[in-house]
Write a protein that binds this DNA or RNA. Structure first.
Lengths: 150, 150
DNA sequence: CTACGATAGTCCAAAAGTTGGACTATCAAC
DNA sequence: GTTGATAGTCCAACTTTTGGACTATCGTAG
């Protein structure tokens, strides 16, 4: 059995991770587009995933998204232009700006949370609720996201 | 609790997928660089992951990698220049070329398989062998890769 | 209160990566 | 042997990412 056949039947963790991410991303933005959010593309995801109703600092966003400042800055420019968010001065720090979702931004947050929930529900149906819950727990643990759920 | 706090303690599936993929990718190429493969970058991963000792068609590679022809073509050019693979004529189809790893390509395949195995071993230790095996099974199922392991 | 190094964010220009379209060669089926 | 599909390349436009320098503000230590 060649490596390719092996990889096709038992893909390594990297391939599985890529499928998980790109599969989810593809469905999210495809279904989003059908619901009137055709102006959003996967690259916006890095920012959209961390929007917060109460605002989030651009720097924190940059850290969470794992990209550099000017990349995030450019995506923010675009999302601001598209009407998903605004940058308001941070009252606590005059260098900083707070990223606030607009009404449309909030709408997208609801829509995207709903789509992701729906995808997760489908997965849970496919493998069983308990098994899916265990899967999620393990995934959180190995990605180092299991910490303190207070 | 704001969305950001929620997302930090219980990240959604997209965020987890991104962490899984980029975490693995980062460690793979960082450790690879320490072992003398510093000329390989994450973007080569899409191609490297599917190299086969017995050769693989460029088109099949393109399909598996989920990018378009010229993107894969460009990555192949680069990996060929770096000495990881060669393109040989496909004896069965004179339009086609077979991508064959060179000695160095084979070396990388061994090294990267080893690093990934090591990462997986670490995960298994962290959550338990059985739980990790179940995790992998579920991940394969929900990414649609559970089919026929003959 | 002033000086300091660190941090938030922007600007610009270069580099890198991706995409679309047209093109050649070959294939497989009729 | 014509025809429609497929393998792959080339080129030029476009988009994204990066590096470096820069301004403003912050927080701390004198």
């Amino acid at each position: 059995m060649g490596r390719i056949a092996r990889k096709t039947s038992t893909p390594d963790l990297g391939i599985l991770g890529a499928r998980l991410l790109f599969g989810l991303q593809g469905e999210l933005f495809r279904r989003g587009a059908e619901l009137g959010f055709g102006d959003l593309k996967p690259k916006h995801g890095a920012v959209l995933a961390y929007l917060d109703e109460n605002g989030i600092g651009q720097n924190e966003l940059t850290r969470l998204a794992g990209r550099n400042k000017q990349t995030i800055g450019a995506i923010l420019d675009e999302l601001e232009r598209l009407g998903y968010l605004t940058r308001v001065p941070d009252p606590a720090d005059r260098r900083a700006r707070l990223i606030m979702p607009t009404g449309r931004g909030l709408e997208w947050m609801r829509v995207s949370d709903g789509i992701v929930e729906d995808i997760e529900r489908r997965h849970a149906e496919m493998v069983g609720t308990e098994e899916y819950a265990a899967f999620l727990r393990t995934l959180k643990t190995i990605t180092g996201s299991s910490q303190e759920i207070h």
